[in-house]
Simulated scan of single mutants.
Amino acid sequence: MIHAILHDAKDTVAVAVVEGLTAGTELTAWIMDEDKMIHVTAKQDIPIGHKVALKDMKVGDTVFKYGVDIGKVVAPISAGDHAHVQNIKTKRW
């Protein structure tokens, strides 16, 4: 079962595509560009449509989604964490 998707192997987050992803779930994420699967364990509940971190990131790191810079880390993120407004902000403002 695919739990999350990402477009590019350099993406640092994937998007949850199923409901009910709870902490402790072993997630399978599909890298679309390479038709390859990767795995990460959810450390927090991940709502459908939200991002899950694929690697540890520190404050100031750039977050990549769909191969594009979507913002910067403003609070430390561990692989498997829910990546959202509490730890990522746009660089535009």
Rank of each mutant, 00 (worst) to 15 (best):
M1Y: 06
H3E: 07
A4T: 03
L6R: 09
L6T: 08
D8L: 11
A9T: 07
T12G: 08
V13S: 01
A14G: 10
A16M: 13
A16W: 09
V18D: 10
E19G: 08
G20Q: 09
L21K: 01
T22I: 13
T25Y: 10
E26D: 14
E26M: 02
E26G: 00
E26Q: 12
L27P: 06
A29V: 07
I31W: 14
I31R: 09
D33S: 13
D33Y: 05
D35W: 13
D35Y: 14
K36D: 15
K36R: 15
M37V: 13
I38N: 12
I38F: 14
I38H: 05
V40H: 11
T41G: 11
A42N: 08
A42R: 10
K43T: 06
I46E: 13
P47M: 04
I48E: 15
I48Y: 15
I48N: 14
K51E: 13
K51G: 08
V52S: 06
V52D: 09
L54F: 13
L54R: 00
D56R: 00
D56M: 10
K58F: 01
D61H: 08
D61Q: 02
T62K: 10
T62D: 12
V63L: 09
F64E: 05
K65G: 02
Y66N: 01
Y66I: 07
G67R: 05
V68G: 00
V68F: 10
V68N: 02
V68R: 09
G71P: 03
V74T: 09
A75E: 03
A75K: 12
I77A: 02
S78K: 15
A79W: 07
A79P: 07
G80V: 06
D81P: 01
D81M: 04
H82L: 14
H84T: 02
H84A: 01
V85C: 03
V85E: 10
Q86N: 07
N87S: 03
N87T: 00
I88H: 03
I88G: 06
K89I: 04
T90P: 08
W93F: 03
W93Y: 01
W93E: 15
